[in-house]
Every structure is written in C-alpha cells, then in structure tokens.
Design a protein around this nucleic acid. Structure first.
Length: 902
RNA sequence: GGGCGGUUAGCUCAGCUGGUUAGAGCGCCUGCCUUACAAGCAGGAGGUCCACAGUUCGAGUCUGUGACCGCCCACCA
C-alpha cells in the first residue's frame, strides 16, 4: 500500500525526523547570489534572529517569537523571495559570567583565584559545552534558519568589528571616558546602564536630620533624606535661592553630624521649598542630582562606599559595615545625639539590578559612555537624531503602531549610554593606559607606545563592553562588516525584525542608532531593518507573568512533546493578536492538536480512497476540466482562493491570528465538514467517477497542505511527501509555491448556491433533532421554493438527501406556511413529514416571530427616517429594504404557521 | 509625576475604514461508534458589548468623563 500513514497521529514520531532532515539537507541555507545571476533577480527578504543568550533555555517567549518569524520566513520563501534568516547566539556578559562564577564557587574556587586569563578560558569551555542548548532546542522546533551562517557575538570577526566600531566612535568624539555617577550593582560589582535598572516601589522612611549650624549658635538646619548613611559623604546643604526661610543662612556653614565635617550651605534651584524642610543634603558621590549640584558649586566628592556597598575609610567609624547596616547605625547614633528630628513612612521608588535584584547604588566612578546626543566631530546629526528621523520619516515602520510613539518618546529623553562593565567576560575595551603619563590610547590593536609620551609601558583597559553594544551592531556585522561584502549589498537593510517590547530600547533602538551611523553610505538604505513587528508577552493561563519564582513557567519543549510542535505553534499563532498579551492555555493547544489530528485523518481518508480506486487514480495529475462543472468543486475552489487571499493579506499585516483562523476554518469547516462529505458517494462509486473526484480532491488537498505549511510545517511535510510516494517534485513542501488568490477562480454564485444548500441541510437536521427522529431513520421531506432555488435543489438532491438523512424529497406546489412544523426562510420552505410536537413547535415559532418582529421594527423605524434615507449610502438602504420585504413575508408565514397549530 | 493598553458568552479571546441578524475555541446540554477522525459527527443553550454623557440617520466600533485591571517610562531629597 503506497500511501499508508500510521493510524494514529503521533507528532513525536514524525517531527524529529523532519527537523533533522531540514538541517541535513541544508534546505534553508542561502547562497549569496552573484550580481546578474537568476537568484539575484529574486526579491530579497532577510531577517536577523534576535540572538538568544548562550546561558538561555528556551521559554515560551522565544517560541512565540520563533513561531512568528518562522511563519513569515516560510511564507516569504514560498512566495518566491530569496530568504535569509540569520541565526546566532549572544555571549551575554553578566549572565554567563555569573553562571560560571557559581560553578566555580561550588568547586570551592573563584574567578579572583583563577585570574582573568584562566577565567575567560574557563568561560569559553563552558560556552562550548552548554552554549548551544538553546539553538539545539530551536533545531528541534524546526526553525527554518540558515544554520550554515550561525555566528557567536564573540567570534573573531565579530569581535574585530566591535573594536572597529569602538575606535571609530571614539575618533568621532562619540565615545568618552569620565567620572560620573552611574548605576552600580554591589553584587555584580559592575556599572550597569539606566535600562538595566528596574524601579520598584519601596515602603521606606523619610528621615529628618538636624545639622548644627557652625559657630555654636545652637541653631540647626534640618534636612530630609531616605538614605541617611550617605550623609557621611555630604559636602553641602542646598536650599532654594528663593526660599526666604533660609536666606540668612546662606553665608554660613553647618557641621555634618557623626563625622563632624564642616560644609557650606549653597543656593540651588534643585531644592524644592515644598518638599520636606526645603533643605536638601548634597552628596555628590552618591546621588546623580547631588552630583550635578556639586558640579555647579564646585563641591568636593566624597565617596563613602566601596564596590561591594560596604562603607569605606571615608565613613569614619562606620567603615567596614554594609550600607544598610550602616544606615541603622547612623540612625541610632543620631538618635542618641538628639539629631534625628523625625522619621515618617514614605514610599518611593528604588532601583534594583535587573539581573540580580540587588538594590542599585548610584556610584561615582570612571566609565566609558556613548554620547548619543552629540554631533560627531566631523559634523552631522547625533546618533539619536538620526534614529529619531528614520522612524519619523517612516523609513522604519513599527507595528503595532503605538510602539512608534513609545520609541520616539524614549529617543527624545535619551541619556548617554554607559557601555563599560567591570567584568571579565566580554569584548575588552580597545584602550590602553600609559603607566607613565596616564594618557589613553584607543587603537585597533595593541599600540607599541603611548601616543603622548612614547612610553612602552602600556596596559589595556580592564573593562569590557556592555553586551548590548555588540548586539547593536549585528544587522551589519553579521553580514561581514567592516569588510565590504556582497552579503551587505544583498541583505542589508534587513527586511524585518520581530521581537518583544521588552528589548525595544535595549536592542531595537540601539541597532537603529548604530546601523544608521555605520551604514550611512549604504546604497540600499541606512536603516538596519525596514520593519519592526513587536509581539506580545506570553503569560500563563491566569495571565500571570511566567517566572521561575512563581513556578508557573511553561516549558515549550514539554508542551511540544505532549501535543506536538505543530499544535503549539498553531496555538501561539492563533492567539497572537496585536496589543494583548497571550494567556497561554493548554486547552487551546489540545484543540489544535485535534486540528492536526483532523488533517492527519483527512490525509488517511484521501489515501484510502486513492488505493481503493486502484490503477489510474492519481492525486497529482490535473483534474479533468469536466470536474469544474460540479457545484461543490467550483465552490471549494472559490473558497480556497478566497482564503489564500485572506491569509496572504493577514500575514503581510502580521495578523497571525486571523491567518491561522482562516486556514483552520477552511480546512475543518469547508474542506472536511462539507466538501469531503459531499464527494464521498462519488469516491465510493464507479471507477471513472472516483478517479475524477479524486483528482480534484487531490488538487484541493495538496493546495490546502501548502496553505497550512508555514503554520504546521511538520505534519504538512509528512503528508505532502506521502502524496508523492517518495518522488516529490521538490525536496520539501517548504520549497513549493504558496497558494495565491486567483480572482478567476472566485465564484460568488457557487458560494451563494452552496450557502443555500448548507442552510437547507442544517434546517432539516435541526428539525430532525427537535422532533427527536431516530438518527438511523430517514424521513421524507417536502419543499417549496422559487424556480431557481428549486432547480438548484433538484440538481443536488442526492447531496441533500444524504447529508440531511432525508428519503424522498418532493416539491409542493404551494407555500408550506400552513404546514405544521415547516421551516421558512427567504430561499425555501421545508418540512419533515413526521409527527409534530405541537407545544415545542409553538414555542419555537413564537420565539422566532419575536426576533423577526424586533428586527422588522428596527428597520422600519430607520426607513421612516428622512435623514437616514438621504444620508445613508444607497447599498445600505437597499439592503434594508430588501430585508424588510423578506421579513414581512417570513413574519406572515410564521403567523400563519402559529395559527395553524391551533 | 508622564505615557500606553485592556474591560464583548461560564473561561480565553476575535470583531480590520461606524451600516442589515455581535463571532470563534474551550466548557456546558441533547443525540450519535454515519464505510478518515470519539483528539470525532450532528444539533442546542448562553451576550443590558464596564458606566454615563456626546457626535451621527445609525455606535461594540468615534469623542469626552469616570470606575476597575494591567503595563511602560521617570535623577525630586
């Protein structure tokens, strides 16, 4: 038996096989076409996979992201595009370093004990061993990426590109080094960027502290603070210049309690007279605002903490204590001295490290920054200005559109980007410090001598770059930049970026800044991608964010093993409506596994009939033209093309949900429930008849598989290959053409006729159910209809009798309105010759009558309205007139039927 | 403090530019092993579209206000 499929659909048995096949055959690998070649004439569609972290394990968010990308890529590929989907992984500086440090700790050692070089070697080992976990999972899910081009952000060539970018930006004056307040994580012991700080409300206290005014007057100046321990680093008190309460104190000084330092009182607009006491303590080394005040008034910067958040030697008696411990000690001591004027409950936002949730400490330290708002030395707009313009001008289209505003808003308020990290794992900053004169030399490779003093005693900068620095460059570095490559010519700008909003700023915005800057001369466009599609978050069935802590994480591989990749993909696609998060529920997935099962069984049915029809039967030959004379064939073909048109349209607009629903309804509703049922008798009939039906069935079925293929690549691949008995016209269904709307195949008349027949069949089934006719028993039916509908019904008598379980369908010469139990519609009247339950029938008719009368009243009110008649478009008015005429007849008939019931 | 999104059937969500009777899946009820599929088939019940006001001939859809839920951004101690 040639086409046999196993009786039960078992995704676990087919999916790994195809996943492996696609990779082994390199089906999705793309050769860069040479200029003038046939391939070069194809339209190009390129997409960069947001590189997962090497530390990562696949979660639902990845799977949603990859499902959407894969659907788009498979679809574009089938639409004839030259598609490049470029995969890679990210070295994930902090995350990876932490992972390896934890491992070292369990071995009783540490990175400090190992030393930098050995540690980095160790991380590379770790990466080689575990770094492909997530890409292995992707492979199992069948992502149609080009694995031959896989990169890693710390690969040699990508690292060289990072250095090149750094050097160029430095030379342009867009990278600088300086001592500023940065967000510091005392646990990770590194600076982090503004974006890596998450703000959380914190129920703390606002303390009022008395600072004695110098000179022994016994006067105090009271300030308010939430972080009393920082007072040890206070170097001034600021009051508002307009605040008359303090104008007499301006020339005086106060003593910082506990460390007895004398500090000035300065006038600064920052102090808000409405807040607290109107006087604010100034700690330039520990607060960004205070830092600015310090600069304005030339204040000393006293750092009282070390990199682990412990008080340092500047903190006097508190040195060696943790910052929060010191806070308590300070408060206790102030209390003792009577200088704590008050403490009230106060809720404020504190910053925490995005990665480890440690409370971030603003810390004065020397770091490297990208100047995003500054013009390059040679002139021209700033990075942020270009990144704003390209989005404003629509050179990058963002979907859903509201993220455009979010993006532009952020761009407008953007600050310089702190790119140095005090880590060992990452791209080491290409700057060398002269040990003799302290000059910094930034260079592409280790300089022989200091540029300023010529000394040979140089030491490379210890810091590495923020991981996002290198990923910001990927749209061009992954295509071979800084070399001039054919890849860039063909594939840059990439066509699309699909990602979650959580990395809109981290990654998307920075890619735009870097891409536009470094590809400014690119002939095909400077932007890194022409479109951005932002998808929702996947939550659990209760709409909770998935998190390890809550223990509600759904492992995609687990659900995939349970229901099949195709079912999980379809779930995600069908729920991916824009603007709302996805509440992932296994119930839905179960439903789509049922759908896959339906497809499977439809295939078995088709194959079974093929084998039964024997010699000469074929699914792959052209169906004879005569088949098109049959209503059901014209109808299903019309539906097929209509749906193909819809799906193409929906995918172009990233409406994965609508596209998925359209194919679902088509396959299950139209194809299985109606088409297959209609043609069953022909398939079981004489050989000639069966072959004709089969050929047409084959055309539709094969087309439906192609239509489904981007959504459910595994099951469609399996069945498609089975159709061709091992001799498929191409290596994969993924390499065939995607169905397109052929307007010539649309057939409104056929669709309308089928609708009438379906309504008729449903009416009869409904009557049978209500009359509780035993299912096995075929009942005679009587009908009344206009000539046209009557002809339609007579031509399809067999279909109706079979699908509605009717035997002996006859036509009455006049309306059946007076016949008990008759159903009346605008197109036909029908009744079953059977005993009628009078009470039930009266209830049904009364209900129906009321509904129709309501509708009629509404419409009549409209038609009586002059305004409506003059202002509403003609087709709406006509439609209502027609409906009113219909309703009037129907109501009359139902009234008659009610009367007739007695 | 600024901005954004949501509120439609028991549950999860569609409903595209306002237009004739508001849809789907799951769940529920009834009946069926009908020569692919019980992961199935047939039929059915179930909705004051958060509230109020407005625009309009016409509002689930547009505007405003409010309520509730959620998210993002933010250097006021």
């Amino acid at each position: 038996m040639p086409h046999e499929l196993p009786k039960t659909y078992d995704p676990g048995a087919i999916e790994p096989r195809w996943a492996e096949y696609w990779i082994r055959e390199n089906l999705f690998a793309v050769k860069t076409p040479q200029p003038g070649s046939a391939e070069a004439k194809k339209p190009v569609f390129s997409l960069l996979l947001p590189p997962p972290n090497v530390t990562g394990r696949l979660h639902m968010g990845h799977m949603l992201n990859q499902t959407e990308m894969d659907i788009i890529m498979r679809w574009r590929r089938m639409r004839g595009f030259l598609t490049l989907w470029l995969p890679g992984t990210d070295h994930a500086g902090i995350a990876t370093q932490m992972m390896v440090e934890r491992q070292l700790a369990s071995e009783g050692t540490s990175r400090q004990k190992l030393g930098r070089e050995a540690f980095v070697r160790r991380v590379w080992c770790w990466k080689k061993q575990y770094g492909s976990a997530i890409t292995d999972q992707m492979k199992r899910l069948g992502a149609s990426v080009d694995w031959t081009r896989e990169y890693f952000t710390m690969d040699e060539d990508l690292s060289r590109a990072v250095t090149e970018v750094f050097v160029r930006l430095y030379e342009e004056g867009l990278i600088y080094r300086g001592k500023y307040i940065v967000n510091w994580c005392p646990r990770c012991m590194t600076a982090i960027s503004d974006l890596e700080v998450v703000h959380e409300d914190y129920a703390g206290k606002l303390y009022q502290i008395r600072y004695p005014v110098s000179g022994g007057s016994g006067e105090f100046l009271t300030v308010a603070t939430t972080r009393p321990e920082t007072m040890l680093g206070d170097t001034a008190i600021a009051v508002n210049p307009k605040d008359r309460r303090y104008s007499n104190l301006l020339k005086q000084k106060v003593i910082v309690p506990l460390i007895e330092r004398q500090i000035p009182i300065v006038a600064d607009d920052f102090a808000d007279p409405q807040f607290g006491t109107g006087a604010v303590k100034v700690t330039p080394a520990h607060d960004p605002n205070d830092f600015q005040i310090g600069l304005r008034h030339n204040l000393e910067q006293v750092n009282v903490m070390d990199e682990q958040g412990m008080m340092n030697e500047n903190a006097g008696a508190y040195a060696g204590h943790d910052r929060f411990e010191a806070r308590e000690m300070v408060l206790r001591d102030l209390q003792k001295q009577g200088l704590l004027a008050g403490a009230k409950d106060y809720t404020y936002a504190i910053g925490k490290c995005d990665r480890c949730r440690t409370i971030v400490e603003p810390r004065l330290s020397t770091q490297w920054f990208v100047a995003v708002n500054k013009q390059p030395k040679a002139g021209g707009p700033s990075l942020a200005a270009v990144a704003t313009k390209v989005v404003q001008d629509g050179e990058i289209r963002i979907t859903p559109e509201n993220f455009r505003t979010v993006y532009l808003n952020w761009m407008e308020n953007i600050y310089d980007w702190c790119i140095s990290r005090q880590l060992w794992w990452g791209h080491r900053i290409p700057a060398w410090h002269c040990l003799d004169c302290n000059e910094i030399t930034v260079a592409r490779s280790t300089p022989a001598q200091c540029l300023k003093c010529g000394s040979g005693k140089l030491e490379q900068e210890q810091d590495v770059l923020d991981t996002w620095f290198s990923s910001a460059l990927l749209p061009f570095t992954s295509l071979g930049w800084p070399e001039t490559t054919r890849d860039q010519e063909v594939f840059y700008p990439t066509s699309l970026l699909i990602t979650g909003f959580d990395i809109l700023f981290f990654w998307v915005a920075r890619m735009v800044m870097m891409g536009c800057h470094f590809m400014a001369d690119h002939a095909q466009g400077i932007v890194p991608f022409r479109e951005v599609y932002i998808h929702a978050l996947v939550r659990d069935a209760e709409r909770q964010k998935m998190s390890k802590v809550k223990g509600n994480v759904i492992d995609p591989i687990e659900v995939t093993e349970k229901y099949g990749t195709d079912a999980v993909r379809f779930t995600l696609a069908s729920m991916a409506s824009p603007g709302t998060d996805i509440a992932f529920s296994e119930d839905r997935t179960e439903g789509y596994r049922a759908f896959a099962n339906k497809i499977w069984n439809a295939a078995r049915f088709v194959f079974m009939n093929l084998d039964r029809a024997g010699q000469g039967a074929s699914l792959t030959e052209r169906a004879p033209e005569s088949e098109l004379q049959r209503l059901e064939n014209r109808w299903i073909l019309s539906r097929f093309h209509r749906v193909a048109g819809e799906v193409n349209q929906d995918l172009a607009n990233y409406r994965f949900d609508e596209a998925a629903n359209a194919v679902y309804k088509f396959f299950w509703g139209d194809f299985c429930d109606w088409y297959v049922e209609i043609i069953k008798p022909r398939l079981a009939g004489p050989a000639e008849e069966a072959r004709g039906a089969l050929a047409f069935l084959g055309v539709v079925f094969e087309g439906a598989l192609r239509l489904l293929s981007p959504f459910m690549p595994f099951i469609t691949e399996e069945i498609w290959h089975a159709i061709y008995e091992g001799k498929p016209p191409s290596k994969s269904i993924a390499l065939t053409a995607y169905p397109e709307l052929d307007a010539g195949r649309l057939n409104d008349a056929a669709e309308q006729d089928m609708t009438i027949l379906q309504d008729l069949i449903i009416s009869i089934r409904n009557m049978r159910a209500e009359m509780k006719i035993e299912p096995k028993r075929k009942a005679p039916a009587r009908m009344f209809a206009g000539a046209q509908v009557r002809r339609l019904i007579e031509e399809n008598r067999g279909m109706i009798e079979r699908l509605a379980s009717v035997e002996g369908l006859e036509f009455a010469s006049q309306s059946l309105a007076n016949t008990r139990g008759a159903r009346v519609t605008a197109n036909f009247e029908v009744c079953i010759v059977y005993e009628v339950d009078v009470a039930a029938e009266r209830e049904r008719l009364t209900k129906e009558l009321k509904k129709l009368e309501n509708e009629l009243a509404n419409h009549q009110r409209q038609l009586a309205n002059e305004q409506f008649l003059s202002k509403a478009p003609a087709h709406v008015v006509d439609g209502i007139r027609k409906r009113v005429a219909e309703l009037e007849v129907l109501i009359q008939k139902i009234r008659a039927a009610l009367d007739n019931l007695g």
